[in-house]
Design a protein around this nucleic acid. Sequence first.
DNA 1: GTCTATATAGGGATAGAC
DNA 2: GTCTATCCCTATATAGAC
Lengths: 180, 180
Amino acid sequence: MSREQAIRQLIPVFRRYGYEGATLSRLSMATGLGRSSLYHHFRGGKEEMAAAVLEYVGQWFETTILAALRTRDEPLERLRVMCENLNEFYQQGQENCLLNAITFGEGNDLFHRQIEQMLKIWLDELARLLLEAGIPAEIAKHRAQEAIILIQGALVLARGLGNTAPFEEMIASLPERLLA
Amino acid sequence: MSREQAIRQLIPVFRRYGYEGATLSRLSMATGLGRSSLYHHFRGGKEEMAAAVLEYVGQWFETTILAALRTRDEPLERLRVMCENLNEFYQQGQENCLLNAITFGEGNDLFHRQIEQMLKIWLDELARLLLEAGIPAEIAKHRAQEAIILIQGALVLARGLGNTAPFEEMIASLPERLLA
DNA sequence: GTCTATATAGGGATAGAC
DNA sequence: GTCTATCCCTATATAGAC
């Protein structure tokens, strides 16, 4: 098994259980690898697995979400593509946000910088698109912040209710809403 | 030490670390009690501690947040009181939402019913207030949902950025925004 | 009501065979 | 590259003294 394959199978564990809840047993079951095999791929152990997962998701985020925001399509279309990809990534609201999951407990101390960085780039890129769509700079910044708040909040509510509807509605309405 | 005193000191542990990250060592340090003393108060161990914490916060929520929404003041004033209390409870955005923290890992299986219940009552009470303020029923329901999404999303973003500003702005603007 | 001591399981991590 | 076996530590939980 390649490192990349392993990382992909580790993602849902950190997402669902957070850093502290992602035990080696769970990581081992998710990959089908024994503990020692995991240590062969990730010599730094669990901390390196979490770092690799964050790195991988960061790359995906860069080449999928941020790239969608930077195309030459119309702003509304770019936001739609972003939302489609988010919808798939979060499995229509059934899957947690990795960033949210990791900001609990020890994970927050270990990975705060990366998480902060990803959020800041996302905010910047959203604000740039909105500015380009003719929205004044200050309002664009504010709406970019609101976009992330709405996505994250909808995920939290959907999980709390055990019902994906709030997330699905949010994703469907977000593109037009941000440009209104 | 009374059970209630103990519960109050346990709350921040579950909030910051989630159910799996809330180890007996941390719970013991937070209360200043040895493990056995904790078991004296909570015979069911960690699971009972989490249940007691949820129950306590649920009570606080009922007598503080929901009660504020049911007074005979003007709707705007009631929402303001709710937001003031939320601001204090979440320490201006520095503290996580207990419900969000517990919905990761094993805690979700154990406490999903209580969490769902609390969210549903909150949604209902918000929708009732908005209806009373003259907002059509369907829109009121939708905005109630949006209120919780905005609060939870702002908490997630604030924690991710390590900056309470998004939460503080949200709490300050929310009452007028919901009635607009 | 709190403590010390202890039991049992699971946690993270490593050595070395294949 | 994966395994078995093992290490030490921490986690949850209990017994019984004070």
